[in-house]
Amino acid sequence: MTSRPLPTGANPPPSDLPPGARRSHALENVSAYLRAHQELQVLDFGGINQPNLDFVTGLGHRIYGENLMLAFDYFFSQQEVASRQFAPERVEQFLDQTFDFEDQSCDAAFLWDTLQFLPPNIAQGVLGRLYRVLAPDSLLMAFFHPENSGPAAPHVCRILDDRNLQLTPRQHVRAIVPFSTRSIERFFQQFQSVKFFLTRENLQEVIARR
């Protein structure tokens, strides 16, 4: 296993970082993993953006992009969303359509803060499918906001370099599902290990190892 050298300007000085940028210990862990391996299949469920695409493909990996929240909005009717009644077969159909990968064929997943903006049973289903498509020892990264409940803005997360992220609130707010540290642990109980990093803004950064 050989680690890749940092590209020129991989970690610019803090003065060069755009507003909203901050250091992410979880990202540092994932970056080290991405640099240590070659030709990985990386999943980005926050809706792909150019910095993430450049970062991942720049390391020689493939990136699959999908906006999980938008996929959910397209698939389920307003009636289903309003009543919060999701028939099991409809949920299965949504998951089949969204996670069209062979078992254990993917190596890393960025979920960002999407899980918190999906109804709990859908989020649990998403995690179950991710467990299936991720290869053993692969990493999953997710964020959990400190908000208790009510509407909140999901964030666009851009990877600036190996350790810095830019988080920008999206225009439209959505219902947020509260998660405590204990509930996050339970949520990821299938996974081999779960690491928590609490940021200054009380954002829980989570890395789960499959």
Partner: peptide, 16 residues
């Protein structure tokens, strides 16, 4: 050189 602008919807794999 793949370029995806903000607010574009893309679902799929990107390989350079």
């Amino acid at each position: 050189r793949p370029v995806i602008e903000d607010e574009a919807y893309f679902k799929g794999n990107v390989e350079t």
